[in-house]
Write a protein that binds this DNA or RNA. Structure first.
Lengths: 105, 105
DNA sequence: GTATATTATATAGATTAACATATTAAGTCT
DNA sequence: AGACTTAATATGTTAATCTATATAATATAC
């Protein structure tokens, strides 16, 4: 639904592919069934925080709440440190996730 | 349940208080009923991503998935930029959120 | 002591995530 | 073609969020 949600879904998929994991393998590590991962990556569900954390953990990612005004700094920082996990910068104009003022649907 | 979830809950509460908002006011801005915010801040629910995003947005926070190894850099960065929102550094040993290997009870 | 404001709890109902499992589809390889 | 792997979908069931509303608890005023 949300642009945000979709972007997180894309980030998860990119991170999984970057690590060379199949949905089933990731599912085993994270304790989430493959079918559900598919739905998550396709933005078909509004997943719960515990699921997001489990997946992030299995992908060596951390969930962070950062002040919006310091987002740019975080973005450039992350982009520099490991473009592989986040994905190619050309493909992801907004590094990990960004939240527009409004008007997404 | 999770240490992680609890930490995010605490972060949300701190951010709300830092902005001088009541649960009801935040609820109006985020479209989440006050009662539910209470439960979220107390870690009584495994909230959905859409709820987390709605609250973060109303608090001028952004949700980010950062590589674990670049977390320290992000932490110090955020800590420096606005200690008010995150809270007093002395009170929050781990800036915003951190995910231990395991062993949370 | 009586208002007022904020937060914590409670109940009931609607929606849906999450699970297990299976199957389909699509790609790769020998 | 057949065997294999991966991903997308489907069904049915369970468990939980989420909403609305109301109330209790707690503090802070007047």
């Amino acid at each position: 639904m949300n642009y945000t949600t979709e972007h997180i879904a894309r980030t998860l998929r990119k991170a999984r592919e970057a690590k060379g994991l199949s949905q089933r393998e990731l599912g085993r590590k994270a304790g989430v069934p493959q079918g559900h991962i598919s739905k998550i990556e396709n933005g078909a569900v509004d997943l719960r925080l515990s699921s997001l954390i489990a997946l992030a953990r299995a992908l060596d990612l951390e969930l962070a709440l950062v002040p919006r005004k310091s987002l740019p700094a975080v973005k450039s920082l992350v982009r520099g440190s490991l473009a592989e996990v986040i994905g190619d910068a050309r493909l992801t104009p907004r590094p990990l996730y960004s939240l527009d003022e409004e008007g997404d649907d």
